[in-house]
């Protein structure tokens, strides 16, 4: 943790500890000032994250009209519904495929960028990061138009080279693929930037030593680059897994869950059930299903970041 390296003058004191002395002295206390400074943050975290989290759990145990507590009723109904299991599968397929592809493409692009002369890197990096800069809801509109069945520009390109005409958003598996393509397009540049930063921090002496030992390119990758980047790779992958698993924008704009609710992910299904169909408790139950996997990822991200900070200290 960053706070580890703080000025350790004076033992930690509680904000309310000094009440015995005069109010004025209490107000001048460092811990009091510090508490006042963090108060807005605490209010945001407590009021808009912790409280809604607890409230969401409570909501998920209510009946549709929110008049009666039905325990795990909502969860039982969800477990019995095929649509819900489709949603769960689709979320996992989507998140895992998209993250793996993003990581591989990002890793490849970072290496390619690292290989070209340094003065050209800025320009290329700037261009390749553009997908990440455009708000995803808006760029997905562009993709939606490119996937259009009758005017689609991608199918036009295929027809020029004699390829097949693909029903991008009309057929379930192609619709799933389309969502993954858009997500990879949007997210791969982020991986590229993270990996490029990590690549640049690998000391050159290590490569020199490897070269002297006669290591091949693959051996350098396996024994120098990957171990040095392992931590940042795992942080980025897990972080992206959280964000991708909870993705909403792309599904909403591109397919809105269709065809036949087969491309819904947890977030878009929760929206559909909770807000659009007005069954708030069941919607809350759907989004709570994201919690376990997010918690596991968050735990490992935190561990990775903490470890990384300790190394740098």
């Amino acid at each position: 943790m960053a706070a580890d390296g703080t000025l350790a003058a004076g033992a930690p004191r509680t904000a309310g500890h000094g009440r015995a002395t005069t109010l004025e002295r209490f107000a001048r206390r460092r811990s009091t000032i510090a508490f006042m400074m963090t108060l807005p943050l605490i209010l945001v975290v407590a009021g808009l994250v912790a409280y809604p989290a607890g409230y969401g759990m409570y909501l998920s145990t209510l009946n549709r009209r929110m008049t009666e507590n039905i325990g795990f009723g909502n969860f039982e109904i969800l477990f019995d519904s095929d649509t819900f299991w489709n949603v769960a599968w689709q979320s996992c397929i989507f998140a895992i495929t998209a993250v793996v592809l993003k990581a591989l493409i990002g890793f490849w692009l970072a290496h390619m960028l690292h290989d070209i002369p340094a003065k050209g890197q800025r320009k290329w990096r700037g261009m390749l990061l553009i997908p990440w800069v455009i708000p995803p809801a808006l760029s997905t509109l562009g993709w939606w138009w490119m996937f259009d069945p009758s005017y689609g520009s991608i199918n036009w390109l295929f027809s020029v080279v004699g390829g097949p005409q693909i029903p991008w958003l009309g057929e379930p598996w192609w619709a799933r693929a389309s969502i993954i393509i858009v997500n990879v397009w949007y997210g791969a540049p982020f991986f590229m930037i993270m990996y490029l930063a990590a690549l640049k921090s690998v000391p050159d002496q290590l490569y020199e030593a490897a070269a002297i030992d006669g290591a091949t390119g693959l051996q350098r990758l396996r024994y120098v680059t990957l171990p040095m980047m392992a931590n940042i790779i795992s942080i980025t992958v897990l972080f992206s897994l959280i964000v991708t698993f909870a993705n909403y924008d792309i599904v909403r704009v591109l397919t809105n869950g269709g065809p036949r609710d087969l491309t819904h992910v947890f977030a878009s299904y929760a929206f559909q059930v909770g807000i659009l169909s007005g069954n708030i408790p069941r919607g809350a139950a759907v989004s709570l299903f994201m919690f376990p996997i997010l918690a596991i990822c968050a735990f490992f991200v935190l561990r990775g970041v903490t470890r990384r900070n300790k190394e740098q200290m």
Partner: peptide, 28 residues
């Protein structure tokens, strides 16, 4: 800079909050 009671926990909590996606809590 101003180490105080609970500052460690709060710093960790802030990072964990960052990892909470908006789609988890939008219904409550």
């Amino acid at each position: 800079r101003m180490r105080f009671f609970g500052s460690q926990v709060l710093a960790t909590g802030v990072f964990l909050t960052y990892l909470v996606p908006d789609t988890l809590l939008f219904i409550p």
